[in-house]
Amino acid sequence: MKTLNLRSLIGTALAAVAVASSGVASAQTSILNVSYDVARELYKDINPAFASSWQAKGNPPVTINQSHGGSSKQVGAVIAGLEADVVTMNQVPDIQQLVKAGLVNSDWQKRLPNDAAPYTTTTVFVVRKGNPKGIKDWPDLIKSGTQVIVPNPKVTGNGRYTYLAAWGFAIKNYKTEEKARDFVKALFANVPVLDGGGRGATTTFTQRNMGDVLVTFENEAILLDKEVGGDQFDIVYPSLSVDAPAPVTVVDKVVDKRGTRNVSTAYLEYLWTPEGQEIIAKHYLRPRNAAVMKKYAKTFPAVNTFSVEKLLGPWDKVMKEQFADGGIYDQIMVKR
């Protein structure tokens, strides 16, 4: 009796392994899109749309897998061996890391239109309904008693853009680097918690009810306002913000190894098609296509933005000065 039990137990276990593993490994062509945290809803819509248009052109069916997380973590994973056919990030330096690691060719920005960024967004403020603290512009964020929620600039593109937007505002308005430094220091002194991803910061603000203002990407802000908030939040556009284009590229080393260059390139090019741009606009990201932009003009009020590279210099320099270990960001965080 006892041996029988043991045997049937082992049998069941083996059967379970077989069933489970058959489900885990599937044979279909698939490509993996490794992306940043808050792009998940966008690619959830892009993927099936691309898959059907790809198949309609007489190609074999393709599955697009998604992986999302804080930008640095995702890039780190790709460098450590996560086999991404394409990466869709929200900042140039993330992809430069992959260039340095020898995974992406250095000419990646020239292979696609708009410096390989199919859409752009900007950094805005989300405040609680009625704007009880009267937050209008960047200087309101450094007032004492105002709690600001920002994702961690060390590890997220979203947070980095927020930091650079504040820095750019200060440079433009107060002229000297010294004053810009004091300004961002005062701002980050008002940040009670730094989340590891853009979405984490949003849930901190909405679900945990922390903070008076959430500084995040426009698309995240509108999504929050329209689909989650239930009219609990207002969006505030500051007088000057940062232009945040989201670059994409195929990962050369991976697509060459897996033989997926064609489908991966087509996947990225699909982002620039009118259908792709329409999906992008529906997710509150500013499309490149003028006709689509016009159609969604109501969603995207005119904003005054600056380009990081034009105002502050090349990305490599900005990253080194601001975010390298011991850089300005570390200095203001230590001394706050």
Partner: peptide
């Protein structure tokens, strides 16, 4: 399925 596989 993956979680069950992990346990098994």
């Amino acid at each position: 399925k993956l979680t069950l596989l992990i346990a098994v």
